[in-house]
Design a protein around this nucleic acid. Structure first.
Ligand code: MN
Ligand code: MN
Ligand code: ZN
Ligand code: ZN
Lengths: 142, 142
DNA sequence: ATTTCATATTAGATATATTCCAGTTTTATG
DNA sequence: CATAAAACTGGAATATATCTAATATGAAAT
């Protein structure tokens, strides 16, 4: 479905104006199941009107990440990838093709408060690495 | 101390020739306690002879990561950072200054093999985020 | 409905990070 | 020492992301 009112409200909640360009980025991330790069998002939202510039796409992604609505996943050597922070989940990143996949959430033990010291903990991110379903067999058979 | 023979052996073990440039990168990462960028490593190893080119520094870091001797930490929007894979540990990355800090290792539960499916799991990486000791107080008092 | 202005958008330039290239040098082996 | 695979080099090229400054717009207040 994709409730337009809900998106609008969540933008407002994050202190962000609801502009067509920003709405388009958020809506795209919410309905697209995957982890697109900024370039892919830019392209996708521009398939439909109105046109959004590259700078605006980057600006909006930055703002949405700051507002806690979107997560940015840094992948070594490649462009950053994004997903809407819907249900909590972990990630699996393929060594070979770089694909980012969702894994069901499970709780992660926090570090002992002694080891944290004066640091302020906001969140934790658990990334599993290896070969994805598509890459695993061909690597094994080589 | 930094055992030259040990470094040489670990390079050979990873199927890598021991060249002065590659040795310098590995030795630097082993004695330096921190998470330098490729540019910082390039600069550091060139303070002493022999001179290493930028391309070679990148090539060697890539090879060392592939050989499992070095870990690459991707930080969103910034240059990748590297550390020698000595003792297992987790990372804490500061939201504000981007600094990467080591946290004592503790075991992380693996995802159920049912959820992994045909994926081949190699390792897991746990990253904690928030404000580092230096950034925490000033943010709190603002 | 109109005014207002902080916020957002734009195209293009710029900055930063990383990889590629093709010719030369070096390492490790026998 | 001869050999061949691997590694090195500087510079060009590519990829990614941010900046700039002029213009436009959302939404709150009238
Ligand atoms: Mn995800
Ligand atoms: Mn580390
Ligand atoms: Zn894959
Ligand atoms: Zn900090």
């Amino acid at each position: 479905m994709l409730d337009a009112g809900a998106i609008k409200r969540s933008l407002k909640g994050g202190g962000l104006r609801c502009t067509p360009q920003r709405y388009a980025v958020m809506a795209f991330l919410m309905e697209y199941h995957g982890h697109p790069t900024a370039a892919e998002i830019y392209k996708a939202v521009n398939l439909v009107d109105p046109r959004s510039s590259r700078a605006t796409t980057y600006n909006n992604l930055r703002d949405l990440v700051r507002a806690g609505l979107v997560r940015e996943v840094a992948v070594e050597g490649r462009a950053a990838r994004f997903d809407a922070k819907g249900i909590r989940h972990h990630h699996f990143i393929c060594d070979r093709c770089g694909n980012v996949e969702d894994l069901a959430w499970f709780d992660v033990p926090r570090p002992a408060s002694r080891t944290l010291g004066k640091r302020v903990l906001r969140e934790c991110e658990l990334i599993f690495r290896g070969l994805c379903t598509k890459c695993a067999p061909r690597r094994a058979s080589r």
